[in-house]
Design a protein around this nucleic acid. Structure first.
Length: 915
RNA sequence: GCCGGGGUGGCGGAAUGGUAGACGCGACGGACUCAAAAUCCGUUGUCCUUAGGACGUGAGGGUUCGAGUCCCUCUCCCGGUACCA
């Protein structure tokens, strides 16, 4: 028998499938459709094991759906705009387009080696003018439809990236990509009105998304119920504040404005102007990060006062940077007695603290409070509302909040309000490598659309990149000079679109990537939409996954699905709510992490010089080897020639000068510090950590089928985990065994085990089918391995008839085909089949054949297993009870005791309760 | 702090309230081999020397005939988010 040789088999079939057009997906209204999308990669240059992990299991699921009779569309593309390409251009003087194209080409080859059923005729590339033309078209339609606008706002500016960023791209005051701090600046930018959809985005009706993503998005949208209240100032201004606790209005003893607040100037009195100006200036220079790291409250008095609308009290107006311009109205009423931040501020600046909620344990005077009180109680010092109970409920559900809202509404000084943490989506970027915002500025300063018939606004290719990173569009006169619709000279917008905008609608471009009349062909859309299964990483929860939901809803409201809907109606599809959400089901995969690895054990000689230990010699020894040295321990980490060595329970820093001797017995020839192996934690893979797993090497060593199988078997797909280099052996053995079973000359010695093997075959079908539906690949493979074990035994003893053997082999191949497409195709073909196994019909589990005729009846005494007896599967409860009570083993446990109760679980167990 | 998710053998992981640890890795013993690899057979939660039994799913309590699974309290880990008024 020839040995299993994946390298020849896999290449052969990949070419064959391509030649046969096996993966072309065409509209066919006579067949049910299944549209599966997996998040498209950024063309960074090399395919990572994470790409395999995120793509091959969904591919197996898509293949499974096709064998189940669905017409499946499973496309692939590239999210090709973005900063890395531009940085490469600045650093290495390669044009982003060239850099990107080269990476795309390389990754296409690598993607093909996975053996996925991608329909390459539908490939998209977001940096292609034929694609971004439509991104620009969407922008213009959104603008015309009132869902995109240019506005001034305090935004996140990244000095290192030389661009603004969306709120979603800033975490802990740092840019989410490269971790550099961002600043707050007031700037004119382009926005999408995602906040108009805040409430609708909070609903997940009709879609099946992980609860964790729902939670993350709910959190991000941050809906809070409360009231807006207006405070009049002595200078005649009105300061609007949002509060979730209008029931504490009577305790508002001062107000605080954000330093960027519009009214700062007019409420500030002349004698305080200089101080205020200095403070505002000082906070401006501080990055968001610095603001947060500074735990002490800072602020300054404006000299101005406002009138508390509920009790007429005169309250001082302060400015402090703990009040954020980006949330609510950028101004707050401060209730130090019942808000921790306000309390801290009041104590720092010696402001009044007036409690207005009496806790159950009694009122503490404001001067004596140690902390703000935020619990339930009763309203006091609150005039007409005294005595109203305060609960821990939010919004109107809390009687005190409800009473306070009613009170301010009646008085005309406020109204019920809902506030969101979500900001409008900032989509303009001051960078080159993106789709140009298709707008222009007329001479008179007004903004207009670039005439639609001239789209796309093409990125000029002949540009010069400056080391500053400043966008070449801003100094490219050829690009800048243009004309408006009337032929008058105008200047182009130089901002480009956020790449997240490009990826907000790509699931629609896949449907007809070459379509010229619209972003997508309604004939295709009517059949394929919506996306049935979407897969990708959970880290996109507040970004891409939120944006794409918004985008689809906005498209719906702008009537962009009307043509599609008409065709759907004509075909009798139910279109109710069908364009409310882009993706019906979402599955998030986990992440593959680097494996933990011990570092070399080092023996170091040298001397302490100042605070560092300077080494004369460093040698690698066995962990149990004896030997004398000044320092002995595991190498925990290394930066250049500085080692961190575990020694006597602590970590010692060792410097290895160039003239020190490094000896690594395992590596012949001259050794240096860079060859030492340091300890690796379980953590994300990255080149700098040296813990990356290269999928190309794995494919080389094991074949794509084994790599695919292993990625699906070794982890719970939704969780991921550390990569264990040795466990892939099990998947290799499995595929090798399937090969052997498929190639074996089976010699039957009778059919004694026919019934048993057939039962197992049909039980396996049911199990695998169920697990594939749920993306539970690891348990599906466990079931297939169990069948493999049974078949290996049968192959040795010949205990089934030849026809049953054939059925078992055939079923094994069919069930495994979506997971390991090449080896199953090869065996299918070698068995004389003319048509591809991937076009075959999925096996159907026969309930009768799958039924057990004997079961192991579990017999418990007081809930503990005491005996197991094989009985007929159809045993009645009475019989089961009789069998249990007559068990000898049970007798020992029941003897001398009274049987109080007998519980029978039909077909499973009998529990005898004695006492 | 708040919101998710989780804690099960040496490891990855299985278990509609009903035999805990399926399946696999690793390890150990054996066969084959001059030898090694590969392959094959067997063992493998802990403890009691065994038949057999006791214990065992982060800790403690509860519900139940029966709890890894449901409820309460606590604890630790991972992820998200945070001066959000």
């Amino acid at each position: 028998m020839e040995r299993y040789n994946p390298s020849s088999i896999e290449k052969k079939w990949q070419q064959q499938w391509e030649a046969d057009g096996l993966y072309r997906s065409r509209v066919d209204w006579d067949r049910p459709k299944h549209y599966a999308v997996t998040m498209l990669p950024y063309p960074s240059g090399d395919l990572h094991i994470g790409h395999w992990y995120s793509m091959t299991p969904p591919d197996a699921h898509a293949r499974y759906m096709r064998m189940k009779g669905f017409n499946v569309l499973f496309p692939m593309g590239f999210d090709a705009f973005g900063l890395p390409a531009e940085n490469a251009a600045v650093q290495r003087n390669i044009h982003p387009a060239i850099w990107t194209a080269a990476n795309v080409e390389r990754m296409q080859t690598q993607l093909r080696s996975m053996g996925c059923m991608f329909d390459w005729e539908r490939e998209i590339n977001s940096s292609d003018p034929s694609y971004y033309k439509w991104s620009q078209w969407f922008f213009q339609k959104f603008f015309e439809g009132g869902k995109a606008y240019r506005g001034s706002a305090v935004v996140n500016w990244s000095p290192s990236l030389q661009t603004v960023l969306a709120n979603e791209q800033v975490i802990d005051g740092k840019d989410e990509r490269n971790g550099q701090p961002v600043e707050q600046r007031r700037m004119e930018q382009w926005f999408y009105s995602i906040t108009d959809y805040a409430d609708e985005l909070l609903s997940y009706d009709g879609i099946d998304w992980p609860s964790s993503i729902e939670a993350v998005q709910r959190n991000w949208i941050g809906r809070s119920e409360g009231a807006e209240v207006v405070f009049k100032t002595e200078s005649g201004d009105e300061i609007e504040v949002f509060t979730t606790r209008p029931d504490t209005l009577w305790g508002a003893t001062f107000m605080v404005l954000a330093p960027e607040h519009d009214l700062v100037g007019s409420v500030t009195t002349a004698d305080h102007a200089a101080d205020v100006e200095a403070y505002v200036e000082a906070t401006k220079g501080r990055s968001e990060l610095e603001r947060m790291e500074n735990e002490e409250k800072s602020g300054i008095f404006t000299g101005g006062f406002a009138i508390n609308p509920v009790n007429g009290a005169k309250v001082p107006i302060w400015i402090a940077d703990y009040v954020l311009m980006g949330y609510g109205t950028g101004a707050i009423m401060a209730v130090p007695a019942h808000d921790g931040r306000d309390f801290e501020f009041a104590r720092a600046f010696d402001l009044d603290v007036v409690p207005v909620i009496e806790p159950p344990e009694g009122l503490v005077a404001g001067d004596e409070m140690q902390d703000a009180y935020v619990g339930p109680g009763t309203m006091v010092n609150s005039g007409p509302l005294d005595g109203t109970p305060v609960t821990e409920e939010k919004g109107r559900k809390n009687p005190s909040v409800a009473a306070a809202i009613d009170f301010v509404e009646a008085a005309g000084t406020g109204k019920e309000a809902i506030n969101y943490r979500l900001r409008d989506w900032l989509i303009s970027r001051q960078r080159y490598w993106g789709g140009p915002v298709p707008m222009l500025y007329r001479k008179d300063g007004t903004v207009d659309l670039v005439p639609a018939e001239t789209l796309p606004v093409v990125l000029p290719e002949d540009v010069e990149f400056l080391p500053s990173g400043r966008s070449p569009l801003t100094y490219n006169e050829e690009f800048l000079a243009t004309e408006d619709a009337e032929g008058e000279p105008a200047r182009r917008e130089t901002d480009t679109l956020d790449t997240f905008m490009c990826s907000s609608w790509y699931q629609y471009r896949y449907l007809s990537p070459g379509f010229g009349a619209a972003p997508f062909d309604p004939e295709e859309a009517a059949y394929w939409l919506p996306v049935d299964d979407y897969t990708g990483g959970a880290e996109h929860g507040t970004m891409h996954l939120l944006y794409t939901r918004f985008f689809t809803k906005a498209m719906r409201d702008l009537g962009m699905f009307e043509d599609t809907k008409e065709i759907m109606d004509a075909h009798g599809r139910d279109t109710e709510g069908i364009f409310d959400e882009p993706m019906l089901r979402l599955k998030n995969q986990g992440q593959i992490l680097g494996a933990e690895r011990g570092g070399d054990t080092l023996l170091i000689e040298g001397a302490l010089e100042g605070s560092v230990f300077k080494a004369r010699s460093v040698s690698v020894v066995g962990a149990s080897d004896q030997g004398d040295g000044d320092i002995r321990g595991e190498l925990m980490g290394r930066t250049e020639n500085i080692l961190r060595v575990g020694h006597d329970g602590q970590v010692v820093t060792v410097e290895v000068p160039e003239d020190a001797v490094v000896d690594i017995p395992a590596i012949h020839g001259p050794n240096d510090v860079s060859q030492l192996r340091h300890h690796l934690e379980v953590e994300r893979m990255s080149k700098s950590r040296g813990n990356v797993v290269n999928p190309d090497e794995l494919v080389e060593a094991f074949g794509a089928d084994v790599v695919r199988t292993h990625l699906m078997f070794a982890f719970d797909w939704t969780k991921g985990g550390p990569w264990d280099p040795s466990s892939i052996n099990g998947s290799q053995r499995f595929i090798d065994d399937v090969w052997k079973l498929g190639r074996a000359e089976y010699v039957s010695s009778g059919g004694t085990a026919d019934r048993g093997l057939l039962r197992q075959v049909h039980q396996t079908i049911a199990k695998v089918e169920h697990d594939m539906d749920e993306f539970s690949f690891n348990t599906a493979l466990a079931a297939l391995m169990t069948l493999r074990n049974a078949m290996a035994t049968v192959l040795r003893d010949g205990s089934v008839s030849s026809s049953v053997w054939s059925t078992a082999i055939e079923t094994m191949l069919l069930l495994l085909a979506p997971i390991a497409p090449h080896v199953t195709e090869e065996l299918w073909s070698l068995a004389g089949r003319q048509e591809s196994i991937h076009l075959a019909t999925y096996p159907v589990s026969n309930t009768e054949l799958a039924a057990d005729d004997e079961i192991s009846l579990i017999i418990q005494v007081n809930g503990k297993v005491r005996d197991k007896i094989m009985v007929s599967a159809g045993i009645s409860s009475e019989e089961a009870e009789a069998v249990a009570l007559s068990s000898e083993k049970v007798e020992d446990w029941v003897e001398g005791k009274t049987v109080r109760k007998v519980i029978v679980v039909p077909g499973r167990l009998v529990n005898i309760v004695v006492g």
